[in-house]
Design a protein around this nucleic acid. Sequence first.
RNA 1: GCGCUUGUAGCUCAGUGGAUAGAGCGCUACCCUGCGGAGGUAGAGGCCGUGGGUUCGAGUCCCGCCAAGCGCGCCA
Length: 558
Amino acid sequence: MTIRNDLEGMIEAATTAAMASGDLPQVPLPEIVIETPARPEHGDYATNLPLRLARAARANPLDLAKTIASRIPVTEMLRAAEAAPPGFVNFRLSEPWLARQVDAILAAGADFGNVPIGNGKRVQVEFVSANPTGPLTAGNGRGAAIGSVLASVLEAAGYHVEREYLVNDAGTQTEVFGRTLVARYQQLLGKSVEIPADGYPGEYMIDIAKRIRAESGDAYDYATIDEPPPAMVLRGVEMIVEGIRADLQRLGVHYDVWFRERSLYDSADGPSVYDTAMARMREQGFLVEKEGALWFASSELGEDKDNVVIRSTGRPTYFASDIAYHYEKFHTRGFDRVLNVWGADHQGHVSRLKAAVQALGVEPARLEILIYQLVSFRRGEELVRLSKRSGNIVLIRDIVDEVGEDAARFFFLSRSADSQMEFDLELAKRQSSENPVYYVQYAHARIAGIIANAGDRGFSSEGADVSLLSHPMEQDLVRKMLQLPELVQLMAERSEPHHLPHYAQELATAFHQFYTECRVLDDEQMPLSKARLRLCEAARIVLARALTLMGMSTPDKM
RNA sequence: GCGCUUGUAGCUCAGUGGAUAGAGCGCUACCCUGCGGAGGUAGAGGCCGUGGGUUCGAGUCCCGCCAAGCGCGCCA
């Protein structure tokens, strides 16, 4: 239960009671919005409910505010509720209560920040899912950071989360990959075979060919570009996937499931998922034949056009795979909620997939597709092109090498998914020692240092009386710490992980300010030292939680 | 041409329809005879792209325009 939720309940109770007693006109209750005022004199929280009620109630908003405020009880938590012009009710938290929350945070420990809004519902977060035709580019890093943190946030919000990577090992790109692989392989054998015009020119393909040659001897010497041996192609894909997995691991990203697109077509144990999904679409009358191809009649569901699912060649499109894949997610595995994190280049695919899911009998709201805008990279003035086909690509491992995994994650995370971001590699490298990530981690190291120092000097928080924590800096630090659960809720509800880095910075600032103003270890003031030491312990827990949610390390020394 | 997203300080970006628009970097001036100075304090710097509209109230919502990124039936 967050403070906001408590206040919301109190406001609603006060308002409805006032209406019942005739102190307020009986009008429909608008949504109760609780904001955090920008100015301290406006309290810790505020609601604009009186302003929202004024029109319907045909009353002066300030009068409404006074009526509501007078019915808000003072509690252990709440020191005062005050009406303020033009029609706010401002809430002030009780200082003793704030101080006591230090013990509450310590009791919660690593669970502090959790909110029980997910009710154990099963949500799948699918992210990155880049084609296994080459190493991950720097641009994939944004999806990796957003997806993995969103997954952590949803877990903290009480969902049962599964992280998934879709390995596209069945489509056209895989075929092109296979032909390129055979070409490189034959080149190793001294044959003058050109890689296909639409193939993958990167040097890594030569390495893959070499490794296959090394582990398979001459088994594939017969291979031709026209008919790449399936086992060889699969092995090549496997090697690429291993590389992708390693790159993601270096970024601190882990998955529960690596799902093979190919498995959708597996009919060894009865009808394939693909066949089942297509049959379902057909039964519902959403598949129509025209121009020699099979189309999903998405225009019947409000889309501006139909989409091909089976080409005139008889091969299914990627869209068909995706339909089958989402049938599998919802019907076979039964996720309550599915969250796909996609780059903006897939934007055009969003609404037709939602339509397809609807055609499969799934409420479209259960599928959320989070689009993040693409990242452009430059080195100083020079723009860097990002394409697996271009020679001049930046890989995610290059980024990690240059700025470190923590800084890379923090940087990718701190922009909202909607905003295009520009990543200047030179700048990132040059400023790395002054990157906000170090500011935040330094705060954690500083706390750890104090706590270690306390142990060495015989200080202990044992038997601390946290009610001594009445200094404004102490109180502000606690206030900031208490925002984490609310932030987790907000991020889970809106799928906006980018608030976390900003929060972490604010929390670090609150600690640094406290540290500057308040000496923790003081032989002359033992009781206060104990209380402040305990405050440090709580601050460490909250800062560590914020860092951990972001997938960053929590250094004790730097 | 159509669709999605974006335009806020010199730069990179936050900002739940509310009260005097914020942070980091950069710039200027300060603060260590005390626990980690990778820190703290203060300051300069804004017609929130632009023109209308809705509203008691708009950086935030709606419409037009300008600009940028991405996409636009059998690539993924």
